[in-house]
């Protein structure tokens, strides 16, 4: 909604930087939780579907998520369109969705794949 309202008024811009900042912080919290080995915290920052996708193989999300190899790095930029966000980190990219409780990670550890969707370590 924010993207539409702002875009219609200002013409060609994306959503307000406040939302981009919030999405970037959510992405950073997710990566920090993984690097600190806090699987429960990391899984709580995933969308239900993404958490489910990590669980595949009979292993609990909190355990499996800490074994993922995602280089991450500092936030280089973020874009918010509607309820979707893309946060570009130095070494990979994160996609988030806005829920009533805030931004949750729907895909992480993503690398570009030409014209096709990004290839992601976590995807739901």
């Amino acid at each position: 909604m924010c993207a539409a309202a702002v875009a219609l008024i200002t013409g060609l811009t994306g959503c307000a930087s406040a939302e981009e900042g919030a999405a970037g912080q959510a992405a950073q919290r997710f990566y920090s939780a993984i690097s600190a080995g806090q699987g429960d915290r990391a899984c709580a920052l995933l969308t239900p579907r993404a958490a489910e996708s990590v669980e595949s193989g009979g292993e609990a999300c909190a355990r499996a998520v800490t074994t993922l190899v995602m280089p991450g790095g500092e936030v280089r930029g973020a874009e918010v369109w509607g309820d979707e966000a893309q946060v570009r980190l130095v070494r990979d990219t994160v996609f988030l969705h806005r829920f009533p409780q805030g931004w949750l990670v729907r895909a992480a550890g993503c690398r570009p794949h030409g014209e096709l969707p990004y290839d992601c370590e976590v995807e739901g």
Binding site: D83, E84, F95, P117
Partner: peptide, 19 residues
């Protein structure tokens, strides 16, 4: 064109593609 771009970009992001 402006609203269409916003809707298209939301769709692109939901499909893990660049805006």
């Amino acid at each position: 064109s402006v609203a269409g771009r916003a809707a298209y970009n939301a769709e692109q992001l939901s499909q893990l593609q660049d805006p």
